[in-house]
């Protein structure tokens, strides 16, 4: 376990040197909040409540969900994996005496941990800039279960991106999968709009898939809503995590033999 911790620590340090970019990217979460501010400001001019949101809770939603989404850095890890497989650099992980998925998870965790601080600062600044009457819940049970959901959600996203990443063993250009996935995911996890705005039939369907619980449900919990979905959320995320764990180990075993066969 210690080696994974060390991996995370090294990556944490590396951020200090290399990821000036990532920090600026957090600052840019402002655009999402600003978009919400202008757009929803105009809409709420006409009516005070939209799908159960007030203007304040809507802005709070965007601030919290931007915060949670910034924690998920697994997408860039997925890109890294597929690139390294393609140009032959992946061998260096295969020969390391550690679980490869564990290594990449630790790496991503290191990056996320580093960003946590900047993330929080950014969120607080947005709250002040937009003078949001921040609508966060004080219910301890909600906060705790939101944290558990966030961790499970991050793990799921990690598995998803790792899975698409290792598909590079088989397909030449996984960049296309990655891009399509990035496009779709940002919508279905509710980072563009609160899923509550969608027709109820669609929401119902989405509750069976893991994406609903990655950022949307934790955000709603932190806003003090949807408490009745905590239990089913945790169960469904656990199920999907297990399913993807299995899928990855099968796929990896199958595809790796191809990799050796090609002998890159």
């Amino acid at each position: 376990m210690k080696k994974y911790f060390e991996t995370a620590k090294v990556l944490f340090k590396a951020q200090l040197v290399y990821r000036f970019d990532t920090i600026t990217s957090i600052i840019f979460t402002i655009s999402k909040v600003f978009l919400a501010y202008v757009l929803w400001g105009a809409i709420f001019g006409k009516q005070s409540v939209v799908s159960g949101f007030t203007f304040n809770s809507m802005l709070s939603y965007y601030i919290i969900s931007s915060f949670i989404n910034q924690l998920d850095q697994s997408s860039s890890t997925g890109w890294q994996i597929s690139n390294e497989i393609r140009n032959g650099g992946f061998s260096k992980y295969i020969i390391k005496p550690m679980n490869i998925f564990g290594y990449f998870t630790a790496q991503t965790a290191g990056v996320s941990a580093f960003l946590l601080f900047f993330n929080l600062t950014a969120a607080v600044i947005w709250i002040f800039i937009f003078r949001v009457d921040f609508a966060i819940t004080s219910n301890g049970w909600y906060i705790q279960s939101a944290s558990v959901l966030i961790l499970l959600g991050l793990l799921f996203m990690m598995q998803l991106n790792y899975f698409i990443g290792i598909l590079a063993f088989k397909f030449l250009d996984t960049g296309i999968f990655m891009m399509i996935k990035d496009n779709i995911v940002q919508f279905i996890i509710g980072s563009l709009i609160p899923l509550a705005l969608l027709p109820s039939g669609i929401i119902k369907t989405m509750t069976f898939f893991p994406f609903y619980y990655v950022s949307y449900l934790p955000t709603m919990l932190l806003l003090g809503r949807n408490g009745n979905e905590i239990f089913s959320g945790i169960v469904i995320l656990l199920f999907w995590n297990a399913a993807f764990g299995l899928l990855i180990s099968i796929t990896y075993k199958r595809l790796k033999s191809r990799y050796d066969g090609v002998g890159i």
Binding site: I43, K46, V50, S51, M179, N183, F187, I193, L197
Partner: peptide, 22 residues
């Protein structure tokens, strides 16, 4: 497919938002 998915998502997002009000 990449462009198409982006297009659809955007369309979905804005029509959802704008459908909230008259």
């Amino acid at each position: 497919f990449v462009d198409g998915s982006l297009f659809l998502i955007q369309l979905l997002m804005f029509s959802t938002i704008y459908s909230q009000v008259g």
